[in-house]
Amino acid sequence: MLAFIAKRMLATIPVLGVVALFVFLMLRLSPGDPASIIAGDYASPSDIERIREQLGLNASIPVQFGKWIWTLAHGDLGISIFTNLPVTKLIAQRVEPTLMLSLTTLVFAVLIAVPLGVIAAWKAGTWIDRTIMILAVAGFSIPVFVLGYILIFQFSLELRWLPVQGYTSPFVDFWKFTRHITLPTVTLSVIYIALITRITRASVIEVLEEDYIRTARAKGQSERIVLLRHALKNAAVPIVTVIGLGVALLIGGVVITESVFNIPGLGRLVVDAILKRDYPIIQGLILVFSMVYVMVNLVVDIIYTIVDPRIRY
């Protein structure tokens, strides 16, 4: 098992290497001179030269890449062109709202989706099952930002129950935080709930066909114990996997949700950076997001082997 974990951890290195190379090349190979694009239409030649110098664009591409990797290896993501602050510092300032939103969404989605999936599997083929599945497809189809605006319209503008936009840290005012985070959490959760519900239903239905479930029922155990103790426990592996895979959805969704609800998190940071072409921030944040994705999936793979001892590598 330790050997597997070590091997699995080593395997993340080439993946991150490819991400770094891709992000680097994407910026360097995009049409047009990055320095003059960043400087804008009204920049003087000396401004452009200054930016070129600052970005190290005068060196050859392999040298630039080598230098960049070297600074990355020291935990340095470079300096933002527009704010002149280190990218790591900007990330540290903005990480809390994003982290909080991701956590509340994760918890909310799992709390709603797993029971829904189990009920759908238990009642498979009935109208309850069909309703839940129709809702799941609908959840996949509704654009996150449209849903966000519908919720703002209904609950903030019409009913005036919740604040329209913005964010308050839970460490400052927990009640305000709850009121601010509710709508974004619901918005971001919907697609995730749809995904987890479908997978939970599928894997519980599969487990319910196993012989030991029939044995448990034959022993006269109540349907609730059969479902929860026998079926759900063994259906856990695919559910944990999809929660890991869903992190990609979550990261994409965070970017949109933060824009809709005006939350000053990493998603807003990266969208603003992209619109202003602040290359160091774009590079740094895409790398950070990819690293989170890779790490979460690493952890999921390791949890696998613990949850399901049958899996051996």
Partner: peptide
């Protein structure tokens, strides 16, 4: 694998 690790929406916007 590397391409999949980059959030698709960010990649597209960039």
């Amino acid at each position: 694998d590397g391409l999949m690790a980059i959030p698709g929406i960010l990649l597209a916007i960039a």
